[in-house]
C-alpha cells in the first residue's frame, strides 16, 4: 500500500513538473475545437448543434496523443522492469498510473471545456451536461489509451500505431458520450449516461489486467 502511494505521488509529481505536457494537451483540445468552426463557417446555431460532437472528438484526440506519457518513460529508464519484480502486483501499478493519467488529462480537459463552450455557443445546461459526460467518459478513454500505450510501449516508432489501434475501440465512448449530450425526450440521454458509466467502470476494472499482460510481454 505504501509502495503504491509512493508510485502515485511520484507519477503525479513527474507529470506536474513537466508543465509543458499539460499545456500541449489543453492547446490541442482547444485547437481542435476552434478548427471546426473555421471549417464549417461562423454559423452559431449549427455550431451549437454540433458542439457535443466537437467536444468529444477534441477530447478523444487530445487524450489519444498523450499515450506516450503513460509507460514510455518508465520503459526507457528501466523502471518498468523494476515494477515487474516489485512486491505490489503490476496490475495495481497500472491502475495507479491509470488514475494519475486521468487526473493529468481528464480533469484538465474538463477544466478547459467552459472555454470551448463559449466558442461553440453552448448554453449553461449544455455545458453542465458536457462536463458530466466528460466526467463519466474520460476514465474509459484513459483506460483505452493505457491499453494502446501498453501494447506499443516496446516500439520505437509506436507513436502512430497506437492511435490507429485504439480509435476503433473508443467508438462506444464517443457514441454514448455524445448521446448523453443529445436529445433527452425519450430518456435516450440518461440511458447513454448509464451505459457510459458502465463502460468506464468495466474498462477501468479490466484494463490493468490486459495492460499488465502486455507490459510483461514487452519487458521480456
Amino acid at each position: 500500500m505504501k509502495g503504491l502511494k509512493a508510485i502515485l505521488l511520484r507519477d503525479l509529481r513527474l507529470g506536474l513538473r513537466q508543465g509543458g505536457d499539460l499545456l500541449t494537451l489543453l492547446l490541442l483540445f482547444i485547437s481542435v475545437g476552434i478548427l471546426v468552426p473555421f471549417a464549417i463557417g461562423p454559423d452559431t446555431p449549427l455550431l451549437a448543434r454540433l458542439a457535443p460532437a466537437i467536444v468529444w472528438v477534441a477530447a478523444l484526440l487530445a487524450q489519444l496523443l498523450t499515450h506516450d506519457r503513460l509507460f514510455r518513460a518508465d520503459f526507457e529508464d528501466g523502471s518498468l522492469i523494476a515494477f515487474h519484480h516489485a512486491a505490489i502486483p503490476l496490475e495495481a501499478i497500472v491502475l495507479a498510473k491509470l488514475a494519475i493519467h486521468w487526473i493529468l488529462t481528464g480533469l484538465p480537459l474538463m477544466a478547459a471545456t467552459p472555454f470551448l463552450a463559449v466558442m461553440l455557443g453552448m448554453d449553461m445546461t449544455m455545458l453542465g451536461r458536457a462536463l458530466f459526460a466528460l466526467l463519466l467518459g474520460t476514465p474509459a478513454l484513459s483506460a483505452f489509451v493505457a491499453l494502446s500505450a501498453s501494447v506499443t510501449v516496446g516500439l520505437k516508432r509506436g507513436g502512430l500505431v497506437a492511435p490507429v489501434l485504439i480509435l476503433p475501440l473508443t467508438l462506444p465512448v464517443l457514441i454514448f458520450g455524445a448521446g448523453m449530450m443529445g436529445d433527452d425526450t425519450f430518456g435516450a440521454a440518461s440511458q447513454a449516461g448509464l451505459f457510459l458509466a458502465a463502460l468506464s467502470l468495466a474498462s477501468v476494472a479490466l484494463t490493468p489486467f490486459a495492460a499488465a499482460l502486455a507490459l510483461r510481454v514487452s519487458g521480456e
Partner: peptide, 13 residues
Amino acid sequence: VNIPIIKFSVDWW
C-alpha cells in the same frame, strides 16, 4: 472483448 460492446453501441446509436 470490445467487438460486442461496439456492436451494441452502434445498434443503440
